[in-house]
Design a protein around this nucleic acid. Structure first.
Lengths: 145, 145
DNA sequence: TCGCGGTACGACCGAATTAGTCTTATATCT
DNA sequence: AGATATAAGACTAATTCGGTCGTACCGCGA
């Protein structure tokens, strides 16, 4: 009911970890998983999804692991979340090929679509470097009511 | 993965329906359910939850039904959603009595809490009357990065 | 060149959550 | 009294999600 999936959570943790160890070494899934007490297998799967979306890049072989593929300021929370969970849609009928039976009757679709847009813009405003900084300047997000 | 529950969806539909028929008559669960092709039983349960939170008021007996308990401009999307699904928390560890094992290690908790705040403020900015209007003036929402 | 430490990926299972139903009780209008 | 509503909780079905496993592949270093 409106929660981030744990996998997306782990993804954010992993990306932030990589951001903090940028320019040091490639971090293996095992290394990250152990640091935060998460199953290695699961963390590996999360990182694989991030790699497929080119958010991180993988290095095979001994002393391999993952590295950020972009600057931390170029990676948004939305990037990470949608890489792992697919597109962010607050309702199932927002999509075009919506199978929401009562599509034409459903009077809340349009307003909810706008709420969805606002949430997307919140999520894409927050970058990994924002999440690492300590000071937090407020930003204004435009909301179409 | 970040979706509104169907029940919350139905709740918004119901509340908007009541707003449109304000000052006409009390709408029964059956009436609303049939109009949008939803099971009567389910719609009834949703309306019961809304009644318990004093968002709508119930009238028993023949020709009874539900009425809005407040002005449409005083009911926010957040009110409706949290009446049905409970408090909106994008992560499970945002809560105080958080059982998130690695609480102290979890480096993303604080930033996510701020994202959560922003989403709450988006949801509480949108009212039922907003959802019924046609014109959509943008509103600015402050986002703590 | 072989083995170890790593990623890649899909199939799979069990647990948890969510959607929806049924039943019984209670209120109120006609 | 009887018809029509809501109230509420127990129950079941369906779906999603978290997590595991097995197997294949890659590449560095001894």
């Amino acid at each position: 009911m409106f929660k981030l999936s744990k996998k997306a959570d782990y993804g954010l943790i992993a990306v932030k970890h990589l951001a903090m160890h940028r320019d040091e070494h490639a971090c293996s899934a095992t290394e990250i998983a152990e640091e935060y007490g998460i199953s290695t297998m699961l963390m590996a799967k999360v990182l694989q999804k991030l790699a497929r979306q080119r958010i991180v890049s993988a290095k095979h072989g001994a002393s391999g692991g993952y590295l950020l593929a972009k600057e931390p300021s170029q990676i948004t929370a939305l990037d990470v979340i949608s890489a792992i969970d697919g597109p962010v849609l607050i309702t199932s009928c927002v999509t075009n090929h919506g199978n929401c039976g009562a599509a034409d009757k459903c009077s809340v679709r349009e307003p909810l679509r706008r709420v969805n847009e606002s949430i997307l813009s919140v999520l894409s405003t927050v970058t990994i470097s924002h999440m690492s900084e300590e000071q937090h300047e407020p930003v204004l997000v435009e909301l179409q009511t």
